[in-house]
Design a protein around this nucleic acid. Structure first.
Lengths: 222, 222
DNA sequence: ATACAAATTTAGATTAATCTAAAAATAGTT
DNA sequence: AACTATTTTTAGATTAATCTAAATTTGTAT
């Protein structure tokens, strides 16, 4: 059996390592999980013993295919529950993370399959992140950061990097949502801010920080 | 903060003590939770220290009002989730217990209130057990065991005592469900079995065990 | 009232997950 | 190549929840 704590470590390794493709450092895991690096070392040894991770001292950790499957399942559950909370229980996108963090550990295959069906098989969560399928596979989209969109180009908002409540509320306030059409009107070299136009109407200036936390899908030039 | 384990002990004390009205023994708690009495003693001391229970060595445990509130909340969540699983996710009444056992520990007031609303404020779970309201109050029904129904009396099935999968499947097989009308046709002194008629059509013989695990609400004599 | 059986508690040990502080390895810079 | 700063690991301790085995209390029956 796998414990809740182990699941959280595995998920963190998965996400820090770009869905399990990279090796990650114990320190970075410790930072995300708000523990100490020494605790991470201990746990990572255990995960390796149990066959969920590859680990060589001082060389970082990666997931085995067994570990990746577990991680993808947890992420799948997390994101499906987020969709449920927003679609069925009237939550807003900035309220769902902490609850999904709890719900992601519920064990029942039927439950998650039925939930998937109830929600009509969504492919992305309320923040635009992709939902792994039953087999742990993820559809990759060619999203880029708004910051990397050039002047007079247009993109559709497809996700956020920072999912903090404060950032999401900022976006709400300025009517930026998934699906919004964003035109880069001009860029300011001085402080890397930019002026954008949202859905062809509202014009506003955004900071580099905002531009670096918003994913868009670039639209073909007109 | 209250741990998951503490919550489970509190819930058990609540249920063994008839919704917190009686004092219960450490042994009975140990049996339900499948632990040893010595573990229970330790935990019960801790619960008393934290203000959730009243405890005097060798004299059993009861809940404080603070403990009762926590227990009622957990039971409320458990039963609401059971309704959700049956009503929205196509589970049958014999499949929901173990999953609800996990879901009952999810912490979010908004979540449970919204769930309550989504389900249209149900008063009973799929086994006929009452759902405590937001304040922890429970509507008591005057249900009796089918075993205590006299010959030629009629009752409506309103709940089960044994919620095991095997018993529930037995009921399904014989078309006995919540709401079924049951007439006691005759009783057999020899082995305490009885012949019943279900919904005015099917006649069958049931054992004492079955009659002692089915709750009915007696109907006024015709 | 005593003696015995059953229930309960205590004492001491174990496991999982964590921590601090010290030691070891790695990586970067001159 | 040597020094230093950073990262990582080890060693030893702590906490929550549990266990076994022994000791204590309670209740019952003669």
């Amino acid at each position: 059996m796998i414990t809740l704590t182990e699941e959280n470590y595995i998920k963190t390794i998965y996400q820090l390592g770009r869905y399990g493709t990279l090796t990650v450092s114990t320190n970075s895991i410790a930072e995300v999980l708000e523990t100490k690096a020494s605790s991470v070392t201990d746990m990572v040894k255990k995960l390796a013993e149990k066959g969920y991770a590859n680990y060589k001292r001082y060389q970082g950790v990666s997931l085995t295919s067994k570990g990746k499957k577990i991680a993808a399942d947890v992420v799948r559950k997390h994101r499906l529950w987020e969709v449920f909370l927003v679609e069925k229980l009237n939550f807003t996108w900035d309220e769902v993370h902490d609850i999904a963090e709890q719900l992601e550990h519920i064990k029942s295959e039927k439950l998650i399959n039925e939930l998937d069906k109830l929600l009509d098989y969504p492919t992305h969560d309320p923040h635009g992140d992709p939902i792994p399928d039953k087999f742990g596979d993820i559809k990759k989209t060619d999203k880029i950061l708004l910051f990397n969109l050039s002047e007079s180009s247009t993109g559709v908002c497809v996700g956020v990097k920072d999912t903090s409540s404060s950032f999401l509320k900022y976006l709400d306030k300025h009517q930026i949502a998934l699906g919004s059409k964003i035109l880069v009107v001009s860029r300011e070299d001085f402080d890397d801010s930019m002026v954008i136009e949202i859905n062809g109407s509202v014009k506003m200036s955004i900071s580099q920080t905002v531009a670096n936390n918003l994913f868009v899908k670039e639209e073909a030039n007109t």
